Every structure is written in structure tokens, then in C-alpha cells.
Simulated scan of single mutants.
Amino acid sequence: SSKGSDDWSCEVMEQMGQMICHQTNHGPGHHSSFAIVDGTPIVGISGPSAGASFTLNFYLRPLMRAFSGLDPEVPRTPMVLAEAFPAGGHGPKGHGGPVRGEDRPAEHPAHKPGEPEFFGIKLLRAEHAEDGTLRAWPVPGRPGSPESFEANAYYMLPNGPGIEAPKPGDVIWAEWR
């Protein structure tokens, strides 16, 4: 269990060691956690397989890159957004507050207006246009759904008060899948 009243992993980790965080600021995979028990790091990976893979990419991959002597920051590629992202929420339900059945508070610091509080992972299909530019089209469906299989890149869509989504023609910085 990754959230709700039947998830006791965070409480157990708090009793056994030090809980570092119990949420991330991205979705899917929002309810992943990190703790240290007897000097051993423990990563709680949550969500469907796609959410788990994003969490591993965001936290384990940079550590592996650093261990290999590479820059831990994963390179991003500029792309021109070809179509608007579909309308709809891209933050967690109850944004900024606890999820139903979860007593732990949201774990983000107070943000200033215009700074992102949460990042919705948006899948993209990126292709070179005739003029040589790299263009990106939003892919329908949630990560891991059959509709999302054509995606070859993703964008971290920032969400928070005063933040507007990029518009068609804007340059976005995306990661390859």
C-alpha cells in the first residue's frame, strides 16, 4: 500500500530509524518515501509500475550516475511544444493537503507565488520537424496505459499558484524515456 489508512510503512520506518520524506512532489509516484535505518537507506517506491519507474529515474538514476563519475543531473533536451497539454488537473488530489485516509501532512515547504509546488509528468511524442527543430506532442493516457506506449519523452509540468502551463510554440525542456 502506498497511501491511505492501511499504509503503515512510514510509521514503521519512523520507529526503526529516521524518516527523511514520505512524499515526492511529482505524480505518478507521489507517495514514495525515503528513510535511513541503521545506516541503510530504504526507498519506498509507490504507484503503478510507471510511477515507480519515474521515482527510480528521479532518485536512483542520479545516484548511479554520480557513482559512475557522471554528472548526476540527467540531461534535458529543448523541444517546441506542438499542441497544448490537455486540460485537467496535473497536481495531486487535495493539492497542498493530506490525501483522503492519510493523516500525514503534505511535505513541501511553503512556496512563494510563481514557484512550482508539484510536477505532473506529461508524456510526449518527440519528432524532428522538416525545419530540423525537435517538436513534442502530448500523448494521451496516463503513464503505463496502452495509449502512452508511443511516448518517447516526458516533461515535468509545474503546478502551483500563478504558474501557467506552456503554450504551443513554447520551448520546453524534456527528458528522453
Rank of each mutant, 00 (worst) to 15 (best):
E73R: 14
E73P: 00
E73C: 02
V74K: 01
V74C: 05
P75I: 03
P75D: 11
P75R: 15
R76M: 12
R76L: 04
R76N: 04
T77A: 01
T77D: 09
T77R: 13
P78T: 05
P78M: 06
P78S: 07
M79I: 05
M79H: 03
M79D: 05
M79E: 01
M79W: 00
V80Q: 06
L81V: 02
A82L: 03
A82D: 06
E83D: 14
E83G: 01
E83L: 01
A84G: 15
A84E: 11
A84H: 11
A84V: 05
A84I: 04
F85S: 06
P86M: 04
P86F: 04
P86K: 03
P86V: 02
P86Y: 09
P86N: 07
A87F: 13
A87Q: 15
A87K: 14
G88V: 02
G88I: 02
G88S: 08
G88M: 07
G88A: 05
G89S: 14
G89V: 02
G89H: 00
G89M: 02
H90C: 07
H90A: 05
G91A: 11
G91F: 01
G91C: 08
G91L: 04
P92T: 09
P92K: 04
P92N: 11
K93E: 14
G94C: 03
G94Y: 11
G94W: 13
G94M: 10
G94K: 13
G94D: 10
H95K: 09
H95T: 00
H95G: 04
G96V: 03
G96C: 06
G96S: 01
G96I: 03
G97K: 13
G97S: 14
G97F: 13
G97T: 10
P98Q: 12
P98H: 10
P98R: 14
P98K: 12
P98V: 00
P98S: 15
V99A: 14
V99P: 06
R100M: 12
R100S: 14
R100N: 15
G101M: 09
E102Y: 02
E102V: 08
E102S: 13
D103E: 15
D103L: 15
R104Q: 06
P105F: 07
P105G: 03
P105I: 06
P105R: 10
P105Q: 03
A106T: 08
A106P: 06
E107T: 05
E107S: 12
E107G: 04
E107R: 10
E107A: 08
H108V: 06
H108Y: 15
H108T: 08
P109L: 04
P109R: 07
A110I: 11
A110C: 00
H111D: 02
K112N: 07
P113S: 08
P113K: 12
P113V: 06
P113L: 08
G114F: 11
G114Q: 07
G114K: 09
E115L: 10
E115C: 10
E115G: 05
E115A: 03
E115N: 12
E115Y: 09
E115P: 00
P116R: 05
P116D: 05
P116M: 01
P116T: 06
P116W: 07
P116L: 02
